[in-house]
């Protein structure tokens, strides 16, 4: 299978195989007008199998959530068909509306129109807590 390289845009490489569709939705790529290619199960020397996402003609996407979803992703910014910048993602300090607080006693369970925001509480152990009730992401 052949997918053209992009002239300007972003390539998300080294995505854990099978996670690309999740990332596609988290980043809101379905709302973009530009071309987006999702490559699943590409051959990888390092990982065996990997997913890749190519986003053409835009550099302005908030990629903070990537660190939360898959910290091994490499982000390549492409300009004039060359890699202008390559960076590894980091755990974001806050994630908004990506995960929902499942604590039945949390105000987010009843309040309408409220953002579900989680804050990084422990970087070493990748623990996020709801900013309202402080429940750990996996507590409920």
């Amino acid at each position: 299978m052949k997918i053209d390289s992009i002239k300007n845009g972003i390539v998300l490489d080294h995505i854990q195989a099978g996670k690309s569709m999740q990332i596609y939705h988290y980043l809101g790529l379905d709302k973009l007008d530009c071309s987006v290619a999702i490559i699943k199960n590409a051959v990888s020397n390092k990982m065996g199998k990997k997913d890749i996402i190519k986003i053409a003609d835009t550099l302005d996407i908030n990629l903070d959530v990537l660190g939360y979803v898959d910290p091994d992703i490499t982000v390549c910014y492409i300009k004039d068909s060359k890699i202008a910048k390559k960076k590894h993602v980091e755990l974001p300090e806050r994630i908004t509306n990506i995960i929902r607080c499942k604590n039945p006693r949390c105000i987010t369970s009843v309040e309408r129109g409220i953002d579900h925001v989680f804050k990084l509480a422990d970087r070493e152990n990748r623990i996020y807590r709801c900013i309202y009730c402080e429940a750990k992401k996996s507590e409920y």
Partner: peptide
């Protein structure tokens, strides 16, 4: 408020100081 974090929500919208007088078991 019986729900945890309710005063936090209130503080984000209030024009005056908010004191949490107890939010559930939080």
């Amino acid at each position: 408020h019986p729900k945890e974090g309710a005063p936090h929500v209130a503080a984000r919208r209030s024009m005056v100081p908010v004191i949490n007088a107890g939010d559930g078991g939080h």
